[in-house]
Design a protein around this nucleic acid. Structure first.
Lengths: 266, 266
DNA sequence: CGATCGTTTGATCCGCATCAAGATAGGTGG
DNA sequence: CCACCTATCTTGATGCGGATCAAACGATCG
């Protein structure tokens, strides 16, 4: 099974033929079975990895033996872009294969040696880094402002963008257990919260999701959330996806505290 | 009051005289009074900003009129590094002056035009971006795994690094209200949690903090937290600060759920 | 000396984690 | 085809942490 990463990955989409060959010569493509690790937390950073196919769970283990999923990656995603630049010598997370995956790897020292040409080699790498940062900021904000049902509503809608799902009817791309973990909540809480979404037009039965009323679904989230990947879902139907700011109005000048009133019953 | 940003800012520490003059010619330094805004959420992105002096609160407003502090910046910090690269045209957060500040500004279009030379112009800009990303990941993890007292313990210790405080005795650099907001918790919760820290050798009276027992204080956090800015505090006393991984042991293979047992009474 | 700001403290309530017991489904072997 | 098994998910009961509302306290200031 051969895959030409240059042709597949938007990451390297707009580079010239010279750079393309350079990349090919210095990269390697490898297949991983389900359950395998690309690398583990604490191990030496050796390569930069890009997912070409499959699903990868990024998680961190706490000393008391539990784990926190920080991201779920699919084809086209960089696994550890920030580690090219980081001062660390060790990986700060585990990356485990959820669905059989094909991974492109580039030696990290080669990447670093070519840092000066990086902008030319992979202009989108920086964009990816910035995107990832924004995603992390969004997560931090969401986890401390949205309720469990809101988080789920937001996540389900945002799923549609990378996967190209029709919000009105699609299947979950991975297990509920994994999704719950990604949303930093217990499976039990996740399961219970799904029922609360029905009145808002989000019906999940088994593996299948049906978002029947996008306006309602958005309203569920938008009074709290501001970065709102969520709103991309609607964009899917109307125009090409971009990040939409849901906060038109300005806010109070003086208050500094965290103060987010609950949506009734959700 | 004149400040030469090139001399002051480590961000531009290792650039040559040519680049330095280029920067000077294209930058502007401006003083802001307390309470002023550098920019507001939703406004057009015009400049890249660096804090030369003072304190800046970065926060986002939710549609229902409340606000969430995402960061507090001090001298040397980039305000919006990610926005140089972002595809967005509008600021995604507010930046308000907490203590009278001096801000360096560089036109964003100039930064972008010189993207190719960016690595040469400001090699540390990328490092800063990566650091910021790591910080955001840490926040996301901490907010959903640490209890309020643990968050505070972690934060108090991490404060010592950028400010060069002696953990055994220092004053809070800004109000408790602001800190509580930065930690995404209510002021009331913050206030109450401080008392719970005493048994762990962290005594806060009024504005003053005394961390009498670093080992105890670390233990309070480290069984849950893995990235642990916290551990830097100890490093302050022993060796130059670096990020320390607190997870020597590996964790279970199969569990995927979020499962973080409580520390008794904290 | 009232007034305002920042902080503490109290009482109450709700969301979610936790523990634990069913339920459903896919897979295997007899 | 059915009994069995394990993985995945649902549902129930309970408890704790922290948000919320509200009142009191201490400072600083005109």
């Amino acid at each position: 099974m051969f895959i030409d990463p240059m042709a597949t990955l938007p990451l390297f989409g707009d580079i010239g033929p010279v750079e393309s060959r350079l990349l090919s010569e210095n990269s390697r493509v490898r297949a991983y079975p389900k359950g395998a690790y690309i690398f583990r937390q604490g191990a030496d950073i050796q390569n930069f990895y890009v997912v070409c196919k499959g699903t990868v769970q990024v998680y961190r283990g706490t000393p008391d033996g539990h784990e926190i999923t920080s991201d779920i990656l699919i084809a086209g995603d960089c696994v550890n872009a920030e580690e090219i630049i980081a001062l660390d010598t060790a990986h700060t997370a585990n990356t485990r294969i959820v669905e059989e995956a094909i991974i492109l790897e580039l030696p990290i020292h080669w990447m670093r040696d070519n840092m000066n040409d990086l902008a030319r080699l992979a202009p989108r790498l920086l964009v990816g880094l910035a995107d990832r940062l924004r995603g992390a900021l969004k997560d931090a904000e969401h986890f401390s402002t949205l309720s469990a049902p809101q988080l789920i509503a937001c996540y389900l809608q945002s799923l549609c963008v990378p996967y190209g799902f029709d919000p009105r009817s699609f299947d979950l791309p991975y297990s509920k257990t994994l999704i719950a973990s990604r949303l930093h909540m217990e499976l039990a809480t996740f399961s219970r919260s799904l029922k609360k979404l029905k009145p808002f037009g989000i019906v999940v039965t088994g593996n299948h999701v049906a978002i029947t009323n996008l306006k309602k679904a958005e309203r569920l989230v938008c009074n709290r959330c501001t970065i709102t990947e969520t709103c991309r879902t609607r964009a899917l139907l109307d125009r090409p996806p971009t990040v939409v700011l849901c906060t038109p109005g300005m806010n109070g000048e003086r208050q500094t505290g965290l103060r987010v009133p609950q949506v009734a019953g959700v």
